[in-house]
Design a protein around this nucleic acid. Structure first.
Length: 988
RNA sequence: GGGCCCAUAGCUUAGUUUGGCUGGAGCACCCGGCUGAUAACCGGGAGGUCGUCGGUUCAAAUCCGACUGGGCCCA
């Protein structure tokens, strides 16, 4: 794991996965999450609430993204010394999703079967399933390094939590915000319950439906109304046809059959060419005409089967004549009510046709479509039959097609809160910012009443009891329930159905015995109550006021209509306060193909296995280094590459540092050093700047600029600082230059580990443990407990500008070398720069020039006036021009002396390589006999002493005679010049 | 039908708020470098009508409008 082979001079960085496991083990041994999770007791309060994931299935990769961006902010706040309120993990345990799991397990298909199975047993299994999935979620979250208090989580199914939810419902009831109504609602016939609008929003999908146009024959008339629908199954419930009073309608001759009536605007959609129009009339003229309904399943009734008028009709689609089934549409219901025709619903609670229409008795509503179509066709009433591709709502959990139907339900009157919702939302900040007024804001302005009751079993029971006189009594606590029922509650009290259903209470209005309304409530109400219900507010004393807004929430985009919305509604209704001040929202992940990943279809990228195999930081980094406010496309390959560049480079840089520091026995440096060297000062400035950038980013809740700052720093550290500083790291440990470089790098890596810790907690912990030489020893401090770095050395913008400019000159110099065709190993006499240096660049002084000369392997850097360019002619120089202005020039060829120096370097490099290849360690001595001729001989002979020293060669013999072949003899080629050498290890 | 977001190299993308140097980078590709990070590190090259059209401006990837295509949400 740690580079223990430092004395060999090579160090391999551990893999990301090794680091991941090592750090996890360390945290576990040190009980780190438990100690750190709540932040610093007594510190400034930072209010957070974990949006409880539904524990109705195992987590998938899509869940990792929001948990990552949440964790970054929480880690930052802990390091800043905040006390986190709250760091509880939270689990959404109830509701349809869990019920579905159990239904599937036992093959239960209806309410009747569940009741036969036993509601109590059913709920017990739901509870057990929730706990089971909670364990999987906990495992994933811990692997991810998402620190929450998993030992003391809040669960929406726990009795204290439910009591708080009851309190909330009661508060709304008392304010007239919780009422019963009869409305047209989305209804899932498979789940046999209504869905709220935000649940419906989760389940829109593209589908193909029939698109049919049906003849409705007018009574006492030889003409037919043309009516268009995509839901043939609603035709049996037809009671009216609606026309627009001012729209123009045409009577068109069809050629076969009776003439038809439709909106003039719709005629071209139904008839090619110029059909014969016999008459034009307005909708008003059609009013009150009676017709024969296609099925007349509803039977006779006052005012049924006639044409009525309404402004909602358009002719942009269909025929401009709308079939009205009051039981199955919002407008239909409204018009039916107005016209006094009643409501006829031929479907039972499972969406199956009953006795009213023998033709389709026992068929589900969708199954009935083809039968109804065939029947209409048989009677000559099917004018046109096509299919239509459109979006249609499906149940967000079971995928069954929804239907809209008129039904009894309890509502939270959110429509009365619209102004407050908009006002409170205006004071919140969002990332991305457009959500506040855009998607979320729009949703608020058109907030409909929230249908909260569900005809289900495993959920918070609606605490409303109704007496025979119809008075509703809402119970707000367990104590009140005991008091009103006149008997103590069972011990222990489980406030779920069966137990609660058995209890009758005294009506608060008339004193009669009241039964509970047999509903559970929308699980989103549970989740939206989390900020206070997790503390069992208001029943248990709290160290703070749980009503005030949370500082921070963070979820994926779907929660704008989900949790964010219910949080705000409940906070508004109960406290007239915003639910949160800052929200950070990520988009969904997409599969490689660009499809949404959150659906459990397609190839599964199993998160726990991936975290273990790639290391959590690689995956965290993937999400943090990209713009998570847009969908991120994820595949096996992107995951594997995610941590490569920045994190891999960092690991190797650390390994390089450790190898050197340990070989030289240099101690870690924690206090900001005050080096004089240009590169050292530059690196420390970069560290200070990056720390500020990360701090600013996280302070404003946006991890993206923080990740960019870390990436750029790692890049600069590896590709410029380390590369340019390498010779100093090879100097003997007692040399001041070696000590300065070590101090700078040691300090820089330690600081980097600290301010990168919220982003990549595993890699940071490893860097910190190794660089500080604590090396995961028991009882040692974690980087995560060390507080936020506030003084990371001096930021020097002028220095950084100068260095940036210097590196630009390097680029130019490299380009010139490339054009001249002279390798960088061959020294050139000079780099000529035209014109004055900028103040920032000049500020780097002679050290800067030396750096430049060294990097470009030129003997000197000279500056000459721009107008002296003529002296650097094409024959001997390569020049870089900026438009017409000369920028720099470099000699086309080395001088003979410089060429010789380059050749010596070539020889040395090959001999060094050979040292390594024969397994010599850094300080091993070697006996070398080298055989060369011509210019190579001259070059090496002239530098014999230096080369011998560099190569630790003793003896170092140079000959012009050929060496005989032998096991220790190697042959080389330098630009076409051959030489050979014998290397033999000298025993220590 | 309405709302929001997006469109930059083969792929992933920075830059767009606040218009201004030759539109940066990574992957892949080609070529090359590297004396103790070598399953590492570094450089060079090629590759871009900045979706299309129009407008504002001395100047537009950036601001405005229309259009095309994509995503999400709502009806």
């Amino acid at each position: 794991m740690a580079p223990d082979d430092a004395e060999e001079g090579t160090t391999a960085a551990p893999s990301a996965a090794e680091i991941h496991r090592r750090v996890l083990a360390f945290w576990e041994a040190e009980k780190l999450p438990e100690r750190a999770v709540a932040g610093v007791p007594g510190g400034p309060v930072f209010r957070f609430t974990e949006g409880p994931p539904g524990v109705n299935g195992p987590p998938h990769l899509g869940h990792v993204e929001p948990r990552t961006i949440k964790d970054v902010q929480l880690r930052y706040r802990r390091m800043r010394g905040h006390a986190l309120v709250s760091a509880m993990a939270g689990w959404d345990c109830q509701g349809l999703p869990v019920e579905l799991t159990i239904e599937k397990r036992h093959g239960l298909k209806s309410h009747r079967e569940i009741e036969a199975f036993g509601v109590e047993r059913f709920c017990d299994e739901c509870r057990a399933a929730a706990l089971e999935y909670e364990a999987a979620w906990r495992e994933m979250s811990q692997q991810l390094g998402f620190w929450l208090d998993y030992d003391r989580p809040y669960r929406t199914m726990d009795a204290p939590y439910i009591e708080s939810v009851w309190w909330a419902l009661r508060s709304m009831f008392d304010r007239g915000l919780l009422e019963k109504g009869h409305y047209v609602l989305a209804y899932c016939p498979r789940c046999e319950t209504t869905l709220s609008s935000h649940e419906v929003a989760l389940g829109y999908a593209e589908t193909t439906d029939p698109s049919i146009t049906v003849r409705f024959p007018l009574a006492d008339d030889a003409r037919d109304l043309l009516v268009w629908t995509t839901t043939p199954w609603t035709l049996p419930a037809n009671l009216l046809v609606v026309a627009h009073p001012d729209l123009e309608y045409s009577v068109v001759r069809t050629g076969e059959g009776r003439d038809v009536i439709l909106a003039s605007e719709a005629v071209p959609r139904y008839f090619a060419g110029t059909p014969e129009v016999r008459e034009r009339l307005t909708g008003r003229e059609l009013a009150e005409r009676r017709y024969a309904a296609p099925f007349e399943a509803a039977g006779p009734g006052t005012g049924r089967y006639r044409v009525v008028l309404d402004g909602f009709v358009t002719a942009s689609e269909g025929t401009g004549l709308v079939h009205c089934a009051p039981s199955f549409g919002v407008d239909d219901y409204r018009i039916g009510l107005r016209e006094g025709v009643g409501v006829f619903d031929p479907l039972d609670s499972r969406g199956v046709f009953g006795d009213a229409l023998p033709l389709v008795r026992g068929k589900g509503f969708k199954q009935a479509d083809p039968i109804l179509l065939a029947d209409l066709a048989g009677r000559g009433l099917l004018f046109r039959s096509e299919t239509l591709r459109h979006t249609y709502p499906f149940c967000w959990r079971c995928d069954h097609a929804l239907l809209y139907r008129a039904i009894d339900s309890w509502f939270v009157r959110t429509s009365r809160l619209t102004d407050a919702l908009v006002r409170l939302n205006a004071g919140t900040t969002w990332i991305p910012a457009h959500l506040r007024e855009g998607r979320f804001g729009n949703f608020l302005t058109q907030a409909k009443d929230w249908a909260v009751s569900r005809s289900r079993y495993w959920g918070t029971p609606l605490p409303v009891w109704v007496c025979p006189a119809g008075h509703a009594t809402c119970i707000g606590s367990f104590a009140e329930l005991a008091e009103r029922s006149g008997a103590p509650l069972p011990e222990p009290f489980d406030p779920h159905r069966v137990t609660v259903d058995r209890i009758a209470v005294r009506c608060a209005t008339c004193g009669a015995s009241a039964r509970r309304e047999p509903y559970t409530i929308d699980v989103w109400f549970d989740a939206g109550s989390a900020p206070f219900a997790q503390f069992h507010y208001p029943f248990e004393p709290s160290a703070f006021d749980p009503r005030v807004p949370l500082d921070f929430v963070s979820e994926a985009i779907d929660q704008t209509r989900g949790w964010y919305y219910t949080l705000l509604v409940i906070a508004t209704a109960l406290f007239d306060r915003p639910a949160f001040q800052h929200s950070l929202t990520c988009e969904f992940l997409l599969e490689e193909t660009g499809r949404k990943m959150s659906k459990s279809k397609g190839k599964v990228l199993e998160p726990i296995a991936l975290l273990d195999r790639l290391g959590a930081d690689a995956i965290r980094w993937l999400f943090l280094s990209q713009d998570f406010t847009s969908p991120i496309r994820v595949s096996e390959t992107t995951l594997e590459r995610a941590g490569h560049r920045t994190l891999g480079t960092l690991r190797n840089a650390v390994a390089f540092h450790l190898g050197n520091a340990r070989a030289d026995g240099l101690a870690p440096v924690r206090e900001p050093p005050a080096p004089t060297d240009l590169l050292d000062r530059w690196l420390l400035s970069r560290v200070a700047g990056a720390r500020t950038a990360v701090t600013d980013a996280l302070e404003s809740y946006d991890p993206r600029p923080a990740a960019t700052a870390v990436r750029d720093l790692v890049d600069d550290l590896s590709t410029w600082y380390l590369r340019r500083s390498r010779p100093r790291f090879w100097a003997p440990p007692e040399q001041p230059e070696r000590r300065a470089a070590h101090a700078t790098l040691s300090y820089a890596l330690g600081e980097l580990a600290r301010f990168a810790a919220p982003l990549v907690p595993f890699t940071s912990e490893w860097v910190y443990q190794e660089v500080t030489e604590q090396r995961f020893a028991a009882g040692n401090a974690s980087v995560h407990l060390g507080g936020w770095p506030t003084d990371s050395g001096r930021y020097d913008p002028t220095l950084e500008t100068g260095m940036r400019e210097l590196r630009e000159v390097v680029e130019i110099g490299r380009e010139l070398r490339h054009r001249a065709g002279v390798k960088s190993r061959i020294p050139l006499a000079e780099l000529v720069l035209f014109g004055e240096a900028s103040p920032a660049l000049a500020g780097l002084g002679g050290e800067g020039e030396a750096l430049l000369a060294d990097e470009l392997n030129v003997k000197r850097v000279v500056r000459v006036p721009v107008d002296s360019a003529d002296r650097y002619g094409e024959a001997d120089w390569v020049r870089r021009m900026d438009e017409t202005r000369p920028v720099a020039a470099l000699p086309r060829r080395p001088t003979p002396a410089l060429l010789e120096e380059g050749l010596a370097r070539e020889v040395a490099r090959r001999l060094q390589q050979s040292r390594k290849e024969i397994g010599l360690r850094l300080l091993d001595r070697v006996a070398i006999t080298v055989s060369l001729t011509g210019p190579l001989y001259e070059a090496v002979q002239a530098r014999r002493a230096t080369l011998a020293e560099d190569l630790l060669a003793d003896p170092f013999e140079i000959t012009q005679e050929a060496l005989p072949d032998g096991p220790d003899v190697r042959r080389f080629d330098v630009d076409g010049l051959g030489f050979s050498a014998r290397l033999v290890r000298v025993p220590a």
